[in-house]
């Protein structure tokens, strides 16, 4: 992978067996912006975000056509190193999923995967990542404590730190706050705005306010298609498509 980390999707169709989950998706996601994906449940937005780091490869009978480029590199090329792709494209899941090990070992997991063994170096990465995730102050005294002992919101920020420790360029977030209380949600939203300058962020959200609060661009998905994509302000204040308007004003979905 080279130095450009914008995402270009052209004519992307995705099938689970006979079911077509994505239909001719075309989208350009810019670097250092937050792009929100909204739409009713089952509209394909989670499927789409998982195709950006090829997590769909784990699902049997999932087929994908079309092109997904990061920079100039088609990530579905045969020559693509999937582990390297996933290192560069980090992911945070809906439910916090820290490993049942210490806080330190969670954050050091990806650096260790990619061969960093020196303790001083790992210490630095762990501290930097936890600071980026706004968790350092809360856990600095108990880095060897179990990650499972943290609250839900802390666990999710730990997962963000864990993803950042891999030194990704793109961060995918699949409804990262839907299992959290409002205060934790606020912290994570703040965090995303801070991270924007260094990372390209794509977030799936069911929360319209969240999309308007944090994102630069918004894409509205419906039944596997992108109905509308543009600047968040204009999508919400001046939707071009009737279906977008109906959705964001709460008339369906």
């Amino acid at each position: 992978m080279d130095n450009k980390f914008n995402i270009t999707v052209r004519g992307c169709d995705l099938y689970y067996g006979n079911f077509q989950a994505l239909k001719n998706v075309n989208i350009d996601i810019e670097e250092n912006e937050i792009t929100a994906l909204i739409g009713p449940s089952g509209c394909g937005k989670s499927t789409f975000i998982k195709s950006l780091n090829r997590m769909n490869d784990l699902i049997e009978d999932c087929r994908i056509n079309g092109e997904i480029l990061i920079g100039d590199q088609n990530i579905y090329d045969k020559s693509m190193d999937i582990n390297l792709l996933r290192k560069n494209v980090g992911m945070v899941f809906q439910k916090p999923n820290p490993f049942p090990m210490s806080i330190y070992d969670n954050v050091a997991f990806a650096p260790r995967t990619f061969g960093i063994k020196k303790k001083s170096e790992l210490d630095k990465i762990v501290e930097r990542s936890l600071k980026q995730a706004g968790l350092w102050g809360e856990v600095r005294d108990r880095l060897r404590g179990k990650a499972m002992g943290l609250s839900g919101g802390q666990q999710q920020r730990l997962c963000i730190a864990r993803a950042l420790a891999a030194d990704p360029k793109i961060l995918l977030m699949d409804e990262p706050t839907s299992a959290l209380d409002p205060i934790s949600t606020g912290k994570i939203e703040e965090l995303m705005s801070d991270l924007k300058s260094d990372y390209t962020i794509v977030i799936v959200t069911h929360n319209m306010q969240q999309a308007t609060r944090i994102s630069d661009k918004t894409a509205f998905f419906l039944l596997g298609e992108i109905i509308e994509y543009g600047k968040t302000e204009s999508v919400f204040s001046n939707p071009k498509d009737k279906r977008t308007e109906n959705y964001i004003t709460g008339r369906f979905g």
Binding site: M55, N83, L84, F93, N97, F109, A110
Partner: peptide
């Protein structure tokens, strides 16, 4: 072992 832990590991670039 929950599937989410395996996914978490793969998503960090683990083999």
């Amino acid at each position: 072992v929950p599937r989410s832990l395996r996914e978490g590991s793969f998503a960090l670039g683990s083999s």
